[in-house]
Design a protein around this nucleic acid. Structure first.
Length: 572
RNA sequence: GGGCCUGUAGCUCAAUGGUUAGAGCAGGGCGCUCAUAACGCCUUGGUUGGGGGUUCGAGUCCCUCCGGGCCUACCA
């Protein structure tokens, strides 16, 4: 048994996430966590809401609520949706937790002691009307290059020229529209990543098994242009983790907070501490996952994220942990994803385009979404959601191939033998062949799941289901029954046991349907089918079962058209 | 501008430089009747975006052109 630490990129707090966010980190990490648990490994699966930063403050202001209250509410909303999608986090924390405050301040203090923090005075735009410093992209104005009137302070989206906010003609606040702006001097802390460049490069180069998407992004940041730059890790905001040197004040940094990208990854660790404390356990309970001097030596740590998060997880966060000179557990494998597009364009939280998690659950059970999203995960390139593809895939894979198999086996048994596993008969060459085929496919499935090959795993699982239909067609117990009822009994006994095997194997993808199958069979035996022949003898003759309702109702054309129309515009 | 990824059947995707480029869906044919008109078997369908090159051999490596996407450090 191994110990596996799994983290999903933290969803930002400012609203309900769309399906593109879900498939990029939370869902595949859940798939992996469920599979690892199913194989008997000890798993710690961590996620949290990322609650700091300017967008959180603005979203709270828009909602007319204090930011702390807004975050508490949105955290609960996101937690409820996570439960709705059956995301099996051991803990779903909050980056605003006391644990994260303590740990972030502690690590900053360690970095300072190691000489890896520099103080830099710089000029930033301050908006008197908004009462805050404005990040570059929250300043709008006319592009001096192309004349586009809604250019942002960091870059003109029209001509793609990179800008400085002071370049803009007629600059104004993107928040309030106010032109009462001024440039003020402010002091910030920088993480001296430049000083750690060689150390980081050596570390990344040692990760030869990482996806190319992950390493190419990291190496580009390390070596592009002038190479890796120091990164500002503080901001002039009210909401966040106060800048401190461990438990001590940091002279000159009063009223400032750490930048969210400094404290967000630290929350992976802090959330594990939150978990320990919530369980009434001591610090050693979480330290054995994160401190190599306290038991984390044998932990395998895997991170899941969308490609936009890669620089922070390959550079800043490792630099933070390495630079602390404390024995923190570093990531062993980073699984990164491309983007899921929606019907010809991008999903967009800010524009309300696409299907959001709450809407998805309001029209169909989570298994439908889990199956489609995972079997179409954007691994090698961006992928696209269309309602036609969703309907076709779900109907064929879930309703026809798996659902109907469960239906035909249980109903046939009920009509000929009653709702008990039938007795008598023996297995012949056909059954031997089935067991051999199942074993081969199952072993392949295990390898793919181990390797986090999400789409390929789903295809292999589906192939496993297909074997059941092929067997039934060949064995044809409905014909056998007429001339040799005992032989038919053996065939049906095998088929019923096959359903249990499918429940176990499918559980990481479609947990609810798997539970329904298991419950219908009157079993609670989730042991992994290491030996397929033995697994197919789990339910003995005479064991009672119930015939389940339709496992997956098909999506009708009218439903699809209705949803297509309903989700064609932007969210209200 | 620079960098990275990507382009394979109508659609979604596979294929350590090595037989005749494969699956699923969709289309066509046959079979079955237990089942959610489901399932099984067979089958049509490709100048691997264009062009050039390296090689005994290229979807794969190199050059170039065309299309799609992402990143480019103060959104997170």
């Amino acid at each position: 048994m191994a110990r596996v630490l799994i983290t999903s990129a933290l969803p930002y707090i400012n609203g309900i996430k769309h399906l593109g966010n879900l498939v990029g980190s939370q869902l595949p990490s859940d798939l992996y966590a469920r599979y690892m648990r199913a194989r008997g490994h000890e798993v710690m699966f961590i996620c949290a809401t990322d609650e700091h930063g300017t967008p959180a403050e603005l979203a709270a202001a828009k909602a007319g609520k204090p930011v702390a209250e807004y975050c508490t509410e949105m955290h609960e909303v996101q937690a409820e949706l996570a439960r709705g999608f059956r995301l099996s986090f051991d803990h779903f924390g909050r980056s605003s937790s006391p644990e994260n405050h303590t740990l972030t301040q502690h690590l900053a203090g360690r970095l300072k002691a190691a000489g890896l923090i520099s103080e830099v005075s710089e000029k930033q735009v301050y908006s008197n009307a908004d009462g805050r410093f404005l990040p570059d992209r929250y300043i709008e104005g006319t592009c001096p290059n192309c004349g586009y009137e809604r250019a942002r302070g960091d870059q003109c989206e029209e001509c793609t020229k990179q800008l400085d906010p002071t370049d803009l003609i007629n600059p104004r606040s993107a928040i309030s529209g106010s032109t009462d702006l001024e440039v003020r001097e402010t002091k910030h802390l920088f993480l001296r990543q430049k000083a750690m460049r060689d150390q980081l490069r050596d570390w990344i180069k040692s990760k030869a098994d990482w996806p190319i998407l992950t390493t190419s992004i990291a190496l580009k940041w390390l070596d592009d242009g002038d190479g890796l730059q120091d990164r500002g890790i503080t901001r002039d905001l009210d909401w966040g983790i106060a800048v401190k040197d461990g438990e001590n004040d940091w002279p000159g940094m009063e009223g400032k907070v750490f930048y969210v990208w400094f404290d967000a990854p630290i929350e992976y660790i802090a959330a594990t501490a939150e978990w320990a404390h919530a369980q009434g356990l001591g610090d050693e309970a979480w330290e054995r996952w994160w401190r190599t001097d306290k038991g984390a030596d044998d932990v395998r740590y895997v991170e899941f994220m969308g490609k936009d998060n890669v620089p922070f997880h390959t550079l800043s966060f490792p630099a933070t942990l390495m630079g602390s000179a404390e024995p923190w557990k570093l990531v062993d494998y980073i699984k990164s994803f491309n983007y899921l597009n929606y019907d010809g364009g991008q999903f967009s939280t800010s524009q309300g385009r696409g299907v959001f998690m709450d809407q998805a659950l309001s029209i169909l059970p989570s298994d439908y979404w889990r199956w489609w999203l995972l079997s179409h995960a954007p691994e090698s390139s961006d992928s696209e959601f269309t309602w036609e593809n969703f309907q076709a895939s779900v109907n064929k894979d879930l309703a026809d191939v798996l659902g109907n198999l469960v239906s035909r086996v249980t109903k046939f048994c009920r009509s000929k033998f009653g709702e008990v596993v039938p007795e008598g008969g023996t297995f012949g060459p056909r059954e031997e062949k089935l067991i051999a085929d199942l074993t081969e496919k199952l072993r392949s499935y295990e390898q793919l799941m181990e390797a986090m090959e999400v789409r390929k795993s789903s295809a292999e699982l589906r192939a496993l289901w297909v074997l059941g239909n092929e067997y039934l067609q060949e064995a044809a117990p409905w014909s056998t029954f007429k001339i040799d009822p005992e032989a038919a009994a053996a065939q049906v006994r095998l088929a019923l046991n096959l359903i249990r095997l499918y429940a176990v194997a499918s559980q990481p993808f479609i947990p609810d349907a798997a539970q329904t199958m298991m419950t219908a069979l009157g079993s609670d035996d989730w042991s992994w089918p290491g030996d397929v022949a033995a697994a197919l003898a789990t339910l003995p003759a005479g064991h009672a079962f119930t015939t389940p309702e339709v496992l997956f109702a098909k999506i009708a054309d009218e439903q699809r058209e209705d949803w297509q129309a309903r989700f064609s515009g932007v969210r209200a």
